[in-house]
């Protein structure tokens, strides 16, 4: 047994103008999870402490919260792994969400991201054409299995810095869920789905890897990369800045061994898209004034052919 001090964010949207914090001290075994510690605190000390929970075995996704500033499932976090020398554990609601009460947040914006996906199978053929199950090879099914482990706990969404600055970004969880349909051989809307997720700012992902911390090992970041790759492979939305940016970055580095920034800007906004070029022109001018303007034509680095060899060995043979 050890004394654990839960330092909890307290707030009630109906009555509080600002949040405050309470510290609740309880004696529990240190192997106990943070969720069970909260449950004990609520049962024995203060019944008003509010949080969501259900399965307590990391499958329902209810109890995602910030524990010492890091988002995770409280039911999967033992107290001993997070308490400091004084036994204190700081508990806050997930970021990127509006708090409702204590650790409970408004989840609706998160669910809306799924609704936009039309998240249900849309086969190209009719069910009646298949007397029994649709045949799917184990290898094709396996592609979906990791994504299927997602419990929609929103940990990745809370950790995502892009969501924090632009809430219209679909976010890692929804993109991973889109991947689940995009890669399902039974689905008939691959291109439409890719177009839709592109519309929902797929390319805003900055590849910071924050969402690679996933309690269920879904690794949404890798799924985001997969969806971007599928977008380019399928030639969907190729007139949009996202795919064009990726391709031009790829092309200039392959050619010169360096990032040819001028070319990247032109390639991203479009070589003949003069209106978009006018928009970025002031930035270019300011850069020129400060002497930061990269040269319009780059001389390839020495041994640029070695860089090219790396690219070629990684490219999928067409």
């Amino acid at each position: 047994m050890a004394q654990v001090k839960l330092d909890i964010f307290r707030y009630d949207e109906a009555v509080d103008a600002v949040p405050h914090r309470d510290t609740v001290e309880i004696d529990v075994p240190i192997t106990m999870t943070v969720l069970d510690a909260l449950e004990t605190a609520k049962a024995e000390v203060d019944g008003s402490i509010s949080f969501r929970r259900s399965c307590r075995s990391a499958i329902c996704g209810s109890c995602s919260m910030n524990i010492n500033g890091v988002t995770g499932l409280a039911c999967k976090t033992p107290c001993k792994s997070v308490m400091n020398d004084d036994g204190v554990i700081q508990i806050d609601p997930m970021p990127n969400f509006q708090p409702m009460k204590d650790l409970v947040v408004h989840m609706d914006p998160f669910w809306d991201k799924y609704t936009r996906l039309k998240p249900y199978l849309q086969p190209a053929d009719r069910d009646e054409d298949h007397e029994l199950e649709r045949r799917v090879s184990p290898a094709d099914m396996k592609k979906l299995v990791d994504a299927a482990n997602c419990v929609m706990c929103a940990t990745c969404y809370a950790l995502c810095p892009v969501v924090s600055v632009d809430p219209s970004f679909a976010g890692p969880a929804a993109i991973a869920y889109a991947y689940r349909f995009i890669e399902d051989v039974r689905d008939g809307k691959r291109k439409e789905r890719l177009a839709q997720i592109n519309e929902d700012y797929l390319w805003l992902c900055a590849h910071c890897y924050a969402c690679s911390y996933c309690p269920k090992h879904v690794d949404p970041h890798d799924r985001i990369v997969d969806v971007k790759r599928a977008t380019i492979q399928e030639g969907v939305m190729m007139d949009h800045p996202g795919p064009r940016h990726a391709l031009v970055v790829n092309r200039t580095i392959k050619k010169t061994g360096m990032l040819a920034e001028t070319e990247v800007i032109l390639g991203t906004v479009g070589r003949f898209n003069f209106r978009a070029q006018l928009k970025v022109a002031p930035l270019g001018l300011r850069m020129a004034v400060k002497g930061k303007m990269p040269p319009p034509f780059l001389k390839p680095i020495p041994k640029a052919d070695e860089v090219r060899t790396i690219f070629e060995s990684l490219e999928v043979p067409t």
Binding site: S137, P138, M141, V145
Partner: peptide
């Protein structure tokens, strides 16, 4: 009912020939 679920996209494990 199992076929109903499969037709709606349920991710069941498969045999090598693609059946459930």
């Amino acid at each position: 009912q199992i076929i109903w679920l499969e037709h709606r996209g349920c991710i069941f494990s498969r045999l090598p020939d693609g059946r459930l």
